[in-house]
C-alpha cells in the first residue's frame, strides 16, 4: 500500500475525532471567550474588549463566588461522609452476606433516580420544611446524599464483591478477629473502589442544582446556584468563570477515578 493510500485510510478517523473534539470542547471554548471578555456585543464575532476584570470580581475575598465555592465544597465533603457511613457497611453486607431481597435493596437505592427530579425535590422540600431543614446545610447534604448513595452503594458493593473471600478466611485463621480482618485486609483492598465512589459522590454534589435550589435557596448558595443567578441576570462573564471553576475538579477527579476503577470491580457493579 502506498503512503498516500495509508494516509487516506486515516481520514475518516480524523474527521470523527475532530467532530467529537468540537462537540466536547466547543462549548468550553465559548466559556473561555466569555470569561476573558470585558465587552462583547452584536454584531461582533469576538469580544470587543479583552481583560481579566471579572476574574478579579469573582476572586475578590469578599465576593459571592468564593463564599459559595466554600459552601459547595463543604456540602460536597459532608455528603461524601454521609454516603460512606452508609455505603461501607451496606456494601459489605450486600456483597458478603446472603441477604434475602438483596436485589430489592439494591434497587431501592436506584429508585430516587428513576422518578423525575422536580416532583421529588418539591415534595422533599415540603417535608423538610416541617422539620426546619429548609435553607440549612444539613438539608442540602441529605438531598445530595440520596443522589450520591446510588453510586456509593453500588460501587462499594462491587469492590467488596471483587475481593476473594479466602483472604478474610486466611486472616481469621491466623488469629485476627472479624473487625481486625476487615480493617487490615478487606478495607485496604476495597479502598480504590471506595475512593472512586467517593469522588463520584463529591462531583455529583458539586454539580447538583435542582435539589439545592428547592431545599437550600436562598439561604444556602452553592456555586451552581450562583451560576444560575448570574446567567439569569445576563452576567455571562461571572457565569462563565463560575462554570470554569466547577470544571476543574471534575476533570481532575475523572482522571483519578479512571485509575481507581479496575475492570474486576466494574464487572461486579450491579451484581
Amino acid at each position: 500500500m502506498t503512503p498516500l493510500a495509508l494516509a487516506l485510510r486515516r481520514v475518516p478517523h480524523a474527521v470523527i475525532l475532530a467532530v467529537l473534539a468540537f462537540a466536547i470542547l466547543g462549548p468550553i471554548s465559548n466559556l473561555l471567550l466569555w470569561a476573558f471578555a470585558e465587552q462583547w456585543y452584536f454584531p461582533y464575532k469576538l469580544p470587543v474588549t479583552w481583560g481579566t476584570r471579572y476574574w478579579e470580581v469573582v476572586f475578590r475575598p469578599s465576593g459571592d463566588a468564593m463564599a459559595s465555592l466554600g459552601t459547595s465544597v463543604a456540602i460536597a465533603c459532608f455528603t461524601v461522609l454521609v454516603c460512606l457511613a452508609v455505603s461501607v457497611p451496606a456494601g459489605y453486607a450486600l456483597a458478603r452476606l446472603k441477604l434475602p431481597l438483596r436485589a430489592l435493596i439494591m434497587l431501592a437505592f436506584l429508585l430516587p433516580q428513576a422518578f423525575p427530579n422536580l416532583p421529588v425535590y418539591i415534595n422533599v422540600a415540603r417535608i423538610f420544611y416541617s422539620f426546619d431543614l429548609n435553607g440549612t446545610i444539613l438539608g442540602v447534604v441529605l438531598v445530595h446524599a440520596v443522589h450520591g448513595l446510588v453510586y456509593s452503594v453500588w460501587i462499594t458493593t462491587a469492590s467488596f464483591a471483587a475481593i476473594d473471600r479466602s483472604l478474610e478466611e486466611a486472616a481469621r485463621g491466623m488469629g485476627a478477629g472479624p473487625l481486625r480482618a476487615f480493617l487490615t485486609v478487606t478495607l485496604p483492598l476495597a479502598l480504590p473502589g471506595i475512593m472512586a465512589s467517593a469522588i463520584f459522590v463529591f462531583l455529583e454534589s458539586l454539580d447538583e442544582f435542582t435539589g439545592t435550589f428547592f431545599v437550600g435557596a436562598p439561604e444556602v448558595t452553592t456555586l451552581p446556584l450562583l451560576l444560575y443567578t448570574a446567567s439569569m441576570a445576563g452576567n455571562y462573564q461571572i457565569a462563565s468563570i463560575t462554570a470554569l471553576i466547577l470544571l476543574v475538579p471534575s476533570v481532575l477527579f475523572m482522571l483519578v477515578v479512571q485509575r481507581f476503577l479496575r475492570a474486576d470491580v466494574l464487572s461486579k457493579v450491579g451484581r
Binding site: D164, S166, L167, E169, A170, R172, G173, G175, A176, P188
Partner: peptide, 20 residues
Amino acid sequence: APPARRGLSMVFQSYALFPH
C-alpha cells in the same frame, strides 16, 4: 470454636496471599 482458637494453620488453593 472460632478458627483462631483451634491452633492450626491453613494453606488455601488460591494461596489467599494479601495482595497489598
